[in-house]
Simulated scan of single mutants.
Amino acid sequence: MTGRLDSAQPYALGLFRIVVGLLFACHGAASLFGALGGADGAGGTIDAGTWPGWYAAVIQLVGGSLVLLGLGTRAAALVSSGSMAYAYFKVHQPEALWPMENGGEASAMFCWALLLLVFTGSGAFGLDRVIASVRREREPKAADAERTPVAA
């Protein structure tokens, strides 16, 4: 049974990455564009350039989109995880110790989920894998072309 579960691991990880990236990007879209109820639940947005909310929303949208696509997953997840750690410790934790008390559950969960992706990579279905496989296919052809003498 373990062997079958192990063979499914890249696919489960890929689906996990897609869901986490989509949800993270949705938070950014809500804050920046008022989508999905907006930053305040009433369609409001965060004023451009305000610290730290607007910058966090940009990281959420861009980082979440990259994680969703599986493009630069590890780097995007690292920056995104760090922004959620900052959000938890600077915004939520001063209000109360526990996430249930300070409203920081989403920040804590995103922080740890994204940190996991830093160490695991994108899993299946990621553009990183597609790009790597295309490069691997082209390398032997380029090497063969260099070795083939050109007739004069």
Rank of each mutant, 00 (worst) to 15 (best):
G70R: 09
P52H: 03
R147N: 10
I59P: 06
T73F: 12
S65T: 15
Y55Q: 13
D144W: 14
L22D: 00
G14V: 01
F119R: 07
A108I: 11
G41Y: 04
M1T: 05
A142Q: 14
E105W: 06
P10K: 08
G21R: 03
R138W: 13
V130D: 04
H27A: 05
Q60E: 15
A87L: 08
I131S: 11
A77F: 03
P52S: 05
H27M: 02
L5E: 00
L114G: 02
G37I: 03
S133R: 15
E105L: 10
E139Q: 15
R74Q: 14
T2L: 13
A30G: 11
R138Y: 11
A25N: 06
Q60V: 12
L69I: 08
F110G: 01
L15W: 04
D40C: 05
E139S: 14
G123C: 08
W54L: 11
A142I: 12
I59Q: 01
D144G: 13
C26V: 09
M84G: 06
P140C: 13
A132T: 06
L15G: 13
S133K: 15
L68F: 15
L127F: 07
V20C: 01
M1R: 09
P10C: 10
W51K: 07
P99Q: 03
G49E: 07
V19S: 00
R147K: 14
A124I: 03
V150S: 03
A106W: 01
G104A: 07
